[in-house]
Design a binder for these strands. Structure first.
Length: 219
DNA sequence: ACCGGGATGTTCT
DNA sequence: GAACATCCCGGTG
C-alpha cells in the first residue's frame, strides 16, 4: 500500500452526504492496521430524525457539534462501539457513520481483536465489527482524524463504483426512507439487512461484482 | 442458507 | 421502562 496523504479538514467541512460519497475507497488506519472504506451512511444532525443530534446537544453527542475531521464514537446495544466522522462546521452536527471496510493490512491483529470472526470476511463487515478490528472504543471519541491514533488517508486509488440505498437499522419515521447510505457494489464486505427477506434485499442493495476494484477482497 | 432470539448497558421518555 | 445507527450463536430445513 502506498503511504497516502491524510485527508485535510476541508474534506470534512462539507455536507455529510458529499463526505459520505467521497469516503468510499479511502483508507482508515490505526498503526499498521488498515481497511478500505466500502460502506458509509450520512447523518445530517439536528434536522435529521435518524441522527443522535436530532434533539440537540447532549453529553453523548457533544463531539458531533465540534469541528469537522474528528471521530465521534458511541456505545450501542449494550456492547458495541460505532464510529463516525464529524462533518460540516463547528456548531453543526453532521456526521458519517463508518459501516464497513475491506481489510487491507494488519489482518493478524484484526483476527486477534475479533476472535468470533470465522472468516476474514467477518473482520470489518459491519459498523461494530470495523470498530473492533481497529480497536476503536469510547477512548477514541473526539480524537483528530488527521493527527490522532486513527487516521483516514487517500492512497490515490481510482474512485470505486458507488451505489446508494436507504440507511440501515433506523425505525420507521426516523428518516429511514432517505437514501443516505453509500456502498461499493459487489464488495463482499458490505453489510446487509438481517432478518426477513435478507437475501432479496441484499441482492437489491449490493448487486453484483463490477470491474475488479483494488482492495476488494474475495474470501 | 435462513431464520429467531439473547446479550447487555446507556440514553432518553 | 423502552428504545437502541448490532452481533453472534444455535435451531431448523
Amino acid at each position: 500500500m502506498t503511504p497516502g496523504s491524510v485527508l485535510p479538514q476541508d474534506f470534512y467541512a462539507r455536507d455529510p452526504k458529499a463526505v459520505a460519497r467521497d469516503l468510499l475507497g479511502k483508507v482508515i488506519t490505526r498503526g499498521r492496521v488498515a481497511a478500505r472504506i466500502v460502506e458509509v451512511e450520512a447523518y445530517l444532525g439536528e434536522r435529521d430524525p435518524g441522527s443522535h443530534a436530532f434533539r440537540g446537544p447532549t453529553h453523548r453527542n457533544a463531539t458531533m457539534f465540534g469541528p469537522p475531521g474528528f471521530l465521534y464514537v458511541y456505545f450501542t446495544y449494550g456492547m458495541h462501539w460505532c464510529a463516525n466522522v464529524v462533518c460540516t462546521t463547528e456548531g453543526e452536527a453532521g456526521a458519517v457513520l463508518l459501516r464497513a471496510g475491506a481489510p487491507l493490512s494488519g489482518l493478524a491483529t484484526m483476527r486477534k481483536r475479533r476472535p468470533a470472526a470465522r472468516r476474514d470476511l467477518d473482520l470489518c463487515s459491519g459498523p461494530a465489527k470495523l470498530c473492533e478490528a481497529l480497536g476503536i472504543t469510547g477512548r477514541d471519541d473526539g480524537t483528530d482524524l488527521r493527527g490522532g491514533p486513527i487516521r483516514i488517508v487517500d492512497d490515490r486509488e481510482p474512485a470505486p463504483p458507488r451505489r446508494t440505498s436507504p440507511r440501515i437499522g433506523l425505525a420507521a419515521g426516523r428518516g429511514d426512507h432517505h437514501r443516505w447510505r453509500w456502498y461499493v457494489p459487489g464488495d463482499p464486505n458490505v453489510s446487509g439487512p438481517k432478518g426477513v427477506g435478507a437475501r432479496t434485499a441484499r441482492r437489491q442493495w449490493t448487486e453484483r461484482p463490477r470491474a475488479g476494484y483494488p482492495g476488494e477482497q474475495r474470501a
